[in-house]
């Protein structure tokens, strides 16, 4: 039953949602929203699982004084201080929670995101080395697209933006759509396999 029960829930929820998609009549129109409400409630409770895992892992690290344990103190302090302030003073604008969000959380997120620019440069440097025929084609295409997308490219030759647009609108779009069609079919296929119980690997089965 340990494996069958989750499968049953999956099958019932999947079929219920399918009915909801096609049948607008009562009571089917309420099934989808009912399931979504359940998902919100379950997800809210699942947060406790995550917080529990965090506390256990970092609590162990602190108690055993493994390498880098002071960082675990900072992490757990952050979790508890933010949660307590949010519950105590609320989350509206001007509250301590809002202050933490604006002046700690957002800048740190921005910092991580900004790393992407440097990583794009390093990845592009490797990808554009003309070591094979395919890489050379990639290099040539990248040359036109990069020059076509910056003002100086148009200044050098007005054909750059046109070539760049053509490359982005036709070969790139065609390739992306081919991948999307394949992926969409994969979604349908996987859904059917899960619904009829053939694919159990997401439950740890074969």
């Amino acid at each position: 039953m340990k494996r069958e029960f989750p499968m049953l829930i999956t099958v019932i929820a999947g079929l219920g949602y399918l009915l909801f998609y096609f049948i607008p009549h009562w009571p089917f129109n309420l099934i989808g929203e009912m399931f979504q409400s359940w998902v919100i409630v379950i997800s809210a409770f699942a947060i406790l699982l995550g917080v529990g895992s965090l506390i256990k892992v970092h609590g162990d690290r602190i108690s055993r004084k493994t390498e880098g344990w002071p960082y675990s103190i900072i992490l757990l302090s952050g979790v508890f201080i933010t949660a307590i302030l949010g519950i105590w003073k609320g989350v509206d604008v001007g509250t301590p929670f809002d202050y933490i969000f604006r002046y700690f959380y957002s800048p740190m997120g921005s910092t991580m995101f900004s790393l992407l620019a440097f990583f794009i440069a390093s990845a592009a440097f490797r990808a554009f080395r003309a070591q094979s025929r395919e890489a050379t084609m990639l290099l040539v295409a990248a040359f036109f697209v990069m020059l076509g997308r910056v003002p100086i490219g148009e200044l050098i030759w007005e054909g750059f933006p046109k070539i760049a647009s053509w490359l982005m609108n036709f070969p790139t779009t065609a390739g992306q759509r081919a991948i999307m069609i394949g992926a969409a079919l994969g979604v349908v296929s996987t859904s059917i396999k899960i619904l009829i119980g053939i694919d159990k690997s997401y439950l740890g089965g074969d």
Partner: peptide, 21 residues
């Protein structure tokens, strides 16, 4: 890429039913 991710389960298990899908 794309569908290969979804095909992985069938490919790795070699289960005839999954290969059929």
């Amino acid at each position: 890429m794309g569908e290969e991710l979804y095909a992985a389960s069938a490919y790795l298990s070699r289960d005839p039913q999954q290969l059929g899908s």
